[in-house]
Amino acid sequence: MGFKLLSKLLVYLTASIMAIASPLAFSVDSSGEYPTVSEIPVGEVRLYQIADGVWSHIATQSFDGAVYPSNGLIVRDGDELLLIDTAWGAKNTAALLAEIEKQIGLPVTRAVSTHFHDDRVGGVDVLRAAGVATYASPSTRRLAEVEGNEIPTHSLEGLSSSGDAVRFGPVELFYPGAAHSTDNLIVYVPSASVLYGGCAIYELSRTSAGNVADADLAEWPTSIERIQQHYPEAQFVIPGHGLPGGLDLLKHTTNVVKAHTNRSVVE
């Protein structure tokens, strides 16, 4: 069995187990497998329904001669939608809004960016022009300005110390501490036991640490421990890039980060 097929099978099995364990909360999309990078042309966006009122959005972007996937989250909030992270750029984010209108038909009224990198804030200006209120932590807003990236308009308070959590509509926002970046936030959907790890969490097929220019490698494993301790009931975990899975993604990420750190020390 090929690795790609095995990865998709694991996603399907995880979703099936969740649907059985929580039949009222989960209505997993039966329309197909989780979209992969090879299936999404740059400039297009796919939506994948995880649970009743919960979707991931998947886009792709060219970077350094390669094409990478990027995940975000959409959560229903009454007759409105909360968006977590842009679709990595203005063109993708405009396509995301169009796809949401086509498939869901509810307005996106608020959006949260989970850290300051372009795959999370690139497209904020498109959201703002569409009347979406954009939010991020003060740290993310400051770092985005320093980096020359787009800056969300509103500040999220109460997320300055490791372990801080605040309720934001249908989700809980959690600051686990520094990891992929010093400002990275985690998003949890309690009604569906869905954990969105953003770039602080890796997919299972990833074996290298990737972009760690703004990471705190020493603190990252401790931050992941905080996530595990705060959300032990999480059933569906979405990484910032690639295929979702279960809580095993947290341990896998820790292993990859520690291996990278150990290699760096040896070198």
Rank of each mutant, 00 (worst) to 15 (best):
K4C: 15
L5S: 13
L5D: 12
L5N: 14
L6I: 06
L6F: 08
S7E: 09
S7Y: 15
K8S: 13
L10W: 12
L10F: 05
V11M: 08
V11P: 12
Y12A: 13
Y12I: 13
L13K: 06
T14V: 12
A15I: 15
M18H: 07
I20S: 10
A21D: 09
S22L: 08
P23W: 09
P23H: 07
L24W: 10
L24H: 07
L24R: 09
A25Q: 10
D29V: 08
S31G: 09
G32S: 08
G32D: 14
G32Q: 05
E33S: 11
E33I: 06
E33C: 10
Y34E: 12
Y34V: 10
P35R: 10
P35V: 10
P35Y: 12
V37E: 08
S38R: 08
E39V: 07
E39A: 10
I40M: 07
P41L: 08
P41I: 14
V42L: 11
V42D: 14
V42Y: 14
G43K: 10
E44T: 12
V45R: 02
Y48Q: 08
Q49C: 13
Q49A: 12
Q49W: 08
I50P: 04
A51T: 08
D52V: 09
D52N: 07
V54Y: 01
W55H: 04
H57I: 00
I58V: 09
A59F: 03
T60L: 13
T60D: 04
T60R: 11
Q61R: 08
Q61M: 10
Q61S: 14
S62Q: 14
D64F: 12
D64G: 09
G65M: 13
A66T: 10
V67K: 13
Y68R: 13
P69K: 06
P69M: 06
P69W: 11
G72Y: 03
I74V: 09
I74P: 02
I74Q: 01
V75K: 01
D77A: 08
D77N: 05
G78T: 14
D79C: 13
E80A: 10
E80S: 12
L81T: 07
L83I: 14
L83D: 02
I84R: 00
T86K: 02
T86H: 00
A87W: 00
W88N: 00
A90L: 10
K91T: 10
K91S: 13
T93R: 00
A94R: 13
A94L: 14
A95F: 11
A95L: 11
A95G: 11
L96I: 05
A98S: 14
I100P: 00
E101M: 15
E101C: 13
K102G: 12
K102S: 13
I104S: 00
I104Q: 01
P107L: 07
P107R: 14
V108P: 15
T109G: 12
T109K: 14
T109S: 15
T109L: 13
R110C: 04
V112E: 04
S113C: 11
S113W: 04
S113Y: 04
T114I: 00
T114W: 02
T114M: 04
H115L: 01
F116T: 03
H117Q: 02
D118R: 11
D118Y: 08
D118Q: 15
D118M: 06
D119G: 02
R120C: 04
R120A: 14
V121I: 11
V121F: 02
V121E: 01
G122N: 15
G122C: 12
G122L: 14
G122R: 12
G122E: 11
G123P: 03
V124N: 09
D125H: 14
V126R: 12
V126K: 15
L127V: 04
L127A: 03
R128A: 13
R128C: 04
R128P: 03
A129Y: 15
T134S: 13
Y135R: 00
Y135M: 02
S137K: 13
S137V: 06
P138A: 14
S139G: 11
T140Q: 03
T140R: 02
R141N: 15
R142C: 14
R142D: 13
R142A: 14
A144D: 04
A144P: 04
E147G: 11
E147D: 08
G148I: 04
G148N: 07
G148L: 07
G148E: 07
N149D: 10
N149Q: 11
N149V: 13
N149M: 15
E150A: 12
E150Y: 12
E150L: 08
P152A: 14
P152H: 03
T153R: 13
T153L: 06
H154L: 08
H154F: 11
H154K: 06
S155Y: 15
S155C: 15
S155H: 14
L156C: 02
E157D: 15
E157Y: 09
G158T: 12
G158H: 15
G158P: 06
G158K: 13
L159F: 11
L159C: 03
S161H: 14
S162T: 11
A165L: 14
R167M: 08
F168V: 08
F168W: 08
F168N: 00
P170E: 09
P170F: 04
V171K: 00
E172W: 06
L173K: 01
F174S: 03
F174M: 13
P176V: 01
P176H: 03
G177S: 04
G177M: 00
G177R: 01
A178P: 13
A179S: 05
A179L: 02
A179E: 03
A179Q: 00
S181L: 01
S181T: 11
N184K: 01
L185A: 02
I186A: 06
I186G: 02
V187I: 08
V189G: 01
V189M: 06
V189S: 04
P190D: 09
S191I: 06
S193M: 06
S193V: 06
S193T: 08
L195T: 01
Y196L: 05
Y196Q: 00
Y196P: 01
G198M: 04
A200D: 02
I201T: 08
Y202L: 15
Y202D: 04
Y202P: 02
E203L: 01
E203R: 02
E203P: 13
L204P: 05
L204A: 08
R206Y: 10
R206H: 14
R206A: 08
T207R: 11
S208P: 07
G210H: 14
V212I: 10
V212N: 10
V212K: 10
A213M: 12
D214E: 10
A215G: 12
D216T: 11
D216A: 11
L217D: 06
E219C: 04
W220C: 03
P221H: 09
T222D: 14
S223I: 04
I224C: 02
E225K: 07
R226K: 12
R226S: 13
I227R: 02
Q229A: 14
Q229L: 10
H230Y: 07
Y231M: 04
Y231P: 00
E233G: 12
A234E: 02
F236E: 09
F236Q: 07
I238D: 00
G240Q: 01
H241V: 00
H241P: 02
H241D: 01
H241Q: 01
H241C: 00
G242H: 03
G242M: 03
L243M: 06
L243E: 07
L243G: 09
G245M: 02
G245N: 05
G246Y: 06
L247R: 11
L247S: 07
K251S: 06
T253H: 01
T253N: 01
N255T: 09
V256Q: 06
K258Q: 15
K258F: 05
A259E: 09
H260I: 15
H260W: 06
T261V: 11
R263F: 08
S264Y: 05
S264I: 08
V265T: 10
V265A: 09
V266C: 04
E267K: 15
E267S: 11
